[in-house]
Amino acid sequence: MAIIYKQLDINNIRYFDRLKELIDADLSEPYSIYVYRYFLNQWPQLAYLAFVDENPESLPIGCIICKNEIHRNSRMRGYIGMLAVQKEFRGQGIAKKLVEKAIDTMIGNGCDEIMLETEVENLAALNLYEGMGFIRMKRMFRYYLNEGDAFKLILPITERSSIRSTFLMNQDPIAETQDISKLIV
């Protein structure tokens, strides 16, 4: 089956509800509408959807939702906020493709690194991301409301990812001033 991947159309409310449904299906506690709006309104170009066909009536069967922002005034950090593929369509490389598309766009946006958190028990997600070069940076104790520990994973894109932010800030005062203006959206 040829899967079609599209960037999100923020004005299509049906997609919006469907995204919530896809993501919420695997969460013990759902995200509020604010969280979805937070990502999608600000970074619609970083949300990709997977469809089984071109039919405009079809609903997505997988999605990825991301953002990118200057982190600690020092480097551009891409962040994968949510990713899900409908159960029946798993194991066909759909998530991998979605992640690749999102990362490509984030690299295009000048990201120095891509970050995400995932549950320690989520082997599918860990395999997926580690298979793309992400490494575990730290473990977080009882990070999720359902009480599991989590890992923070990072994929380095540029050399800036391996320099502590304190030193990046000191070295690059220009970045600092630019960051401030970007932070106050």
Binding site: M132, G133, P156
Partner: peptide
């Protein structure tokens, strides 16, 4: 072990030793 276009061994190593 990953063989993916995003993998850069040196960057991964440097990030680990950040």
């Amino acid at each position: 072990s990953a063989k993916n276009k995003f993998v850069n061994e040196k960057l991964i190593h440097d990030l680990r030793f950040k």
